[in-house]
Nucleic acid binder design. Structure first.
Length: 427
DNA sequence: GATGGCCTAATTAGGACTTCCGGTGT
DNA sequence: CACACCGGAAGTCCTAATTAGGCCAT
């Protein structure tokens, strides 16, 4: 059974019947979502009694959030060749053996996995400087718009999570988004570091750099300007913009259950949640414990509303469709910028793929450990989900234990945004 | 003994930060 | 004054590519 703070990261590779997917067959493999039980993501931060506990609590939050000792969390180790069974409404695609070069992807992908939020080309095409030794192939670089890494790089078990990936992770994590980091304009990839210190500490924790601070992390972010991964939003502090986003990004928005970080965050029953200010610190995560308990007993995650978005692939978690209801929205063949499969992201929809437990059981545990984790989770949730889905059928969307949204009393359903021109610039 | 194939360890290049710094703007 | 922000410079860490060497078969 999954332990608290367990996350499941897996690619939802589908060598399954793609015909089931209809027009979605070209959807990317990486789908993103948290494990249904939000308590699995407990940040474990005690309620803040004073601002002086910021550091400790932030670090504790980082511990719990990232679960750094757990290779199953952000280590990307499951970016390997994991094949998952798929339900009809789950969009997956093969992610294995993707050979990429600076000239482009060679192999599995014939559709762009990412969409650009800019028209401007990447800033830097870093040229390797050869000296002395015989010329050799370039080492794979971070998946910047034009510089794409080999998939295999992420299979080595290293802690190779780039900062931009990390930020995307946070932006898809309801425990930190919008509390520490939030979208200010998800349509164009603009986000804000609501609590820059906490985010920096989380990053430092992940990188095993206890001295990490926003100044240092900010330097790394500034290097992203040159590489065309990020832009700075002029005139707004702590606000940055991704130049590219995965199409199946989960956008956690400030729904009814989630107040803007700058607003009064009174979801914490204890009243100690002072998550408002930028530097209020990670103690704000303490409220997660509260919410974790709530959500444990009430699987529907009422605190957020989020949606998938993409120029064509936008899907709304808040209103899950049944497999037969999905509308085949074709995906525009825009230029691939960042390979989506590099995202250390989990998918709730992937979890859904595992609902087909019979298929899961046919897998070999040795090669699909995380799959089995998921399967176990799903098995334990199966009954509840069935009940929840019944509720969906009867009364609109409710978030099921596998992460689908439910129309809880406070849940606002976020409609899938309108298609955003890829050339949209930040506002 | 020469050659070739395979495997492994060591070396090297280079990417992605990290650290430090001085400076500017709000 | 604090903080955000900028970018140069140098350093660290890690990983992939390359090379060298050993072993074995022919």
């Amino acid at each position: 059974m999954l332990q608290q703070s367990d996350l499941i990261f897996d690619f939802a590779s589908d060598h399954v019947n793609m015909s089931q997917l209809g027009g979605y067959s070209d959807y990317p493999a990486v789908i993103v979502e948290q494990v249904p039980h939000t308590h699995l993501l407990s940040y474990g931060v005690e309620q803040c009694e004073s601002g002086e506990e910021e550091t400790m609590e932030t670090l504790v939050a980082a511990d719990s959030l990232l679960n750094m000792d757990c290779p199953d969390t952000l280590s990307l180790e499951h970016y390997s060749q994991t094949f998952l069974p798929s339900l009809g409404d789950v969009i997956t695609s093969p992610v294995t053996q993707v050979t990429v070069s600076a000239e482009g992807i060679v192999g599995a992908f014939d559709q762009p996995q990412w969409h650009s939020l800019h028209t401007n080309p990447p800033a830097a095409q870093l040229q390797s400087k050869k000296r002395g030794r015989k010329a050799r192939h370039r080492r794979a670089e971070s998946p910047t718009p034009d510089i794409i890494v080999k998939k295999d790089k992420y299979n080595k078990g290293g802690n190779t999570l780039y900062l931009w990936q990390f930020l995307m992770e946070l932006l898809q994590d309801r425990q930190v988004c919008p509390r520490y980091i939030k979208w200010t304009n998800p349509h164009v990839g603009i986000f804000k570091l609501v609590n820059s210190k906490a985010v920096a500490r989380l990053w430092g924790k992940h990188k095993n750099k206890p001295d990490m601070n926003y100044e240092t992390m900010g330097r790394a972010l500034r290097y992203y300007y040159q590489r065309g991964i990020l832009n700075k939003v002029e005139g707004q502090r702590l606000v940055y913009q991704f130049t590219s986003l995965p199409k199946d990004m989960i956008y956690i928005t400030d729904g009814d259950g989630i107040k803007e970080e700058d607003d009064d965050d009174h979801e914490d029953i204890s009243g100690n949640d002072e998550a408002a200010s930028d530097d209020s610190d990670a103690s704000t995560v303490a409220s997660s414990d509260q919410s974790v308990e709530e959500e444990d007993s009430h699987p529907p995650q009422k605190k957020m509303s989020c949606s998938f978005r993409g120029p064509a692939g936008h899907r709304t978690r808040a209103a899950p469709r049944l497999s037969g209801q999905r509308e085949p929205t074709p995906r525009p063949a825009s230029a691939s910028l960042i390979q989506e499969q590099h995202l250390p992201i989990v998918s709730a929809e992937m979890l859904r793929t595992l609902q087909n437990l019979q298929k899961v059981q046919s897998l070999q545990p040795a090669g699909h450990a995380s799959v089995f984790k998921t399967a176990q989770l799903l098995g334990s949730l199966c009954e509840r989900q069935a009940a929840a889905e019944t509720a969906v059928d009867c009364g609109g969307a409710r978030e099921t234990p596998d992460g689908r949204s439910h129309p809880g009393p406070k849940t606002s359903q976020v409609e899938a945004p309108q298609l955003v021109p890829l050339t949209s610039s930040h506002q």
